[in-house]
């Protein structure tokens, strides 16, 4: 029982330490790449959870230009049809983002 508690405390300490370096992959894990496809005027998947340091690629497979924009945090600006844009997850938390061109398009990126 005590062993488990100590283990949990240690793990917590490691996470806290990793948390100090912004943009550094947590717990020494390999940074992964995630793709959000923009298709049919939607972000797919609409909700995605990643780790800090992971790359998130928005790929526009629609016929019209879009953006992926989270106020104050990231802004792809225009992503033309067939083009893509990459954001490296830095700031932890759950972040709502939109396409500034199409008010109905919304997504959530959660960074752990």
């Amino acid at each position: 029982m005590l062993g488990i508690r100590v283990g949990a405390a240690l793990a917590g300490a490691v996470i806290a330490t990793a948390g100090l370096g912004a943009g550094v992959p947590a717990r020494g894990a390999e940074a992964r790449e995630h793709t959000i496809v923009i298709e049919g005027m939607q972000f797919k998947p609409a909700a995605l959870t990643v780790r800090r340091g992971d790359r998130v690629v928005w790929r526009n497979q629609d016929l019209v230009p879009h953006t992926a924009t989270a106020a104050q945090v990231f802004d792809s600006r225009t992503i033309e049809p067939g083009a893509s844009w990459t954001y490296t997850a830095g700031k932890a938390g759950s972040l709502g983002y939109v396409c500034t061109f199409h008010p109905g398009m919304k997504g959530t990126l959660t960074v752990e």
Partner: peptide
């Protein structure tokens, strides 16, 4: 078919 969602939006 691909253009339809844009018209709906």
């Amino acid at each position: 078919e691909k253009s339809r969602p844009a018209f709906v939006a």
